[in-house]
């Protein structure tokens, strides 16, 4: 009797397996997938660089660049918490894999322009 139930369930139940490559990957609104950087808001205060547990972020204040190594980032979201300027956010999609030749760091040029009245930013 129990077996019949199990067998019948198979016919009316959706398959458990996700058809991943055809279907989009599953995630939720709160999933920490990868880090997104908004170059127009970054004041290069370097807080994200200092507080990153795996030191995946490098902010160069002189060259005005913001660099992330996706192969070091642990997606903890600590940088998002410490960023006071809303320049960082977490997106749902995971970072893509890379072949040996494609592996590298992602580099952004900071386009933030200081407002008219210059004031001191955080950091040293």
């Amino acid at each position: 009797m129990k077996m019949l139930k199990t067998i019948l369930k198979q016919f009316f139940h959706e398959p458990v397996t996700t058809l991943f490559p055809e279907e989009p990957p599953r995630n939720y609104a709160g999933t920490r997938g990868h880090l997104v950087f908004d170059p127009s808001k970054c004041t290069s205060c370097t807080m994200c660089m200092k507080r990153c547990p795996s030191q995946a972020i490098i902010v160069d204040r002189a060259a005005k660049t913001w660099i992330i190594d996706r192969f070091r980032c642990v997606m903890c979201g600590n940088c998002v918490d410490v960023c006071k300027f809303d320049s960082l956010s977490m997106e749902r999609e995971y970072s893509k894999s890379a072949a040996a030749a494609e592996r590298g760091v992602e580099k952004f040029d900071i386009t933030y322009v200081k407002p008219e009245k210059p004031k001191k930013e955080g950091g040293e």
């Binding site: 660089m49 030191q55 490098i58 760091v105």
Partner: peptide, 9 residues
């Protein structure tokens, strides 16, 4: 002070 690896720079 947290030292950032130079080679990645």
């Amino acid at each position: 002070v947290t030292v950032v690896n130079k080679e990645a720079k």
